[in-house]
Structures are given as C-alpha cells and as structure tokens.
Amino acid sequence: MLADLHFLARVIPALLSGAVITAELSVLTFLICLVWGLLVALARTNHGPLGWIAGAYIQTVRNTPLLIQLYIIYFGFAMGGFPLSGFMSGLLALCIQNGGYVAEIYRGGLQSVSQRQYEAGRALGMRRWTLYTTVIMPQVIARVIPPMTNQAISIIKDTSQVAAIAVMEMMKVAEVWVESSANTYDVFAGAAIIYLVLTSIAGFIGKVTERRLAFAQ
C-alpha cells in the first residue's frame, strides 16, 4: 500500500485542491451563519408572527436531512430557470441548515445568562444597548464557543454531502479517483486524514478562543 508513490504524488495534490474547496465552503458557511443565526435567534425572541416564523424555520431545517435541502435548492432553482452552480447551491443549503442550529446555540447562550445579570445592569442604570453590549453579550460569547466549535466541525463534515451535486470538494475528488484507479484504500485514507486535520484545526481554534475569552464564569 505504501508502494505506489507515483499514485500518491498525483492523488495528494488533487485531494488538496478538493480540500481547498471544502475549506472555502466551511469557512464561508460558518461566517455567514454566525450573522444569519444571530438574526434568526433575535427574531425568535419576538412574540408575534416573526417569532413563529423563525421557530418554524428552525424546526424545519433541524428535522429534514441536509441532502434533501440540497436537492431542493439545486434542482429547484435549475428547474425554475435560475440554475445555481453546485458550489452556490451547496453554500446556500449549508447556510440555511446551519443557520437554524446556530440560532439554537445563541438561544441556549442567551438563556444561560442569569436573570440577575440583567437586574444588576439595570440597577446600575444601564440602558438596553449598554446592558447588552457590555454585560450580556460578552458572557454569551464565552458560553457559546464550545457548541460553536462543535458546529464548525459539523459544517466541515457536512460539506462532504455537496459531492452529491458534483461539486469538486474533497469527497467528490476522492470518489472520482477511486472510480478511475481502484486504489480505494489510499485515496480514502488520504481524504480521511485531511478531514481529520481540518476538523482538528477547527477544534484547536475553538479551544484557543475559549481560553482567550475565558473570564471567571
């Protein structure tokens, strides 16, 4: 298995180019979801129809598979006359799905900040904006980092499903190479290792961020 270095020499760059796409999708999705998820979470706090819509949105994306959402967007848009590239469909589907999960993470973080913090701030005469930016949000951010890290890892893994619509991220690249070379083990081992590297990097960044932002809870 270690023998075929020629093969490895050709596969690795291909896998790495796939990994770049994987990384792009992951990072873009994560960043977009940080913002989008926050908006959804804030919408959910609303007591009127907006809150209900946000809630329904979250429940819908949490209870349907990513793959189906992917197909709906990809094929749906194509049929509807605005064909989206695989990458864009994938990005859109990933953002829609993970936006729901990130919103729930924010909600958990907001809920976990004790009511007393609000009271203390108001007792000191803070108004809403100051209260939120100087007292509440820093605590929410600190508490939200571990689940966000997990979500980031989840996103990296979910990008593999975009292979189903022929995007040349790493999973698809691996599949193509396996089909054309019958060198199954090496290709997948390589892909697996690169995924482990990517998810480990995400985990590491998460831990470092957690330590940096750790104040006594």
Partner: peptide, 15 residues
Amino acid sequence: RGIPLLVLLTFVYYL
C-alpha cells in the same frame, strides 16, 4: 467524530 459519515460509507461501499 472528525470524519464525515459519507466518507466512511463510501469507503466501506468500495472496500
């Protein structure tokens, strides 16, 4: 926890 399920499924499927 660091590898996508799809990779494992495909791997086993071919292997």
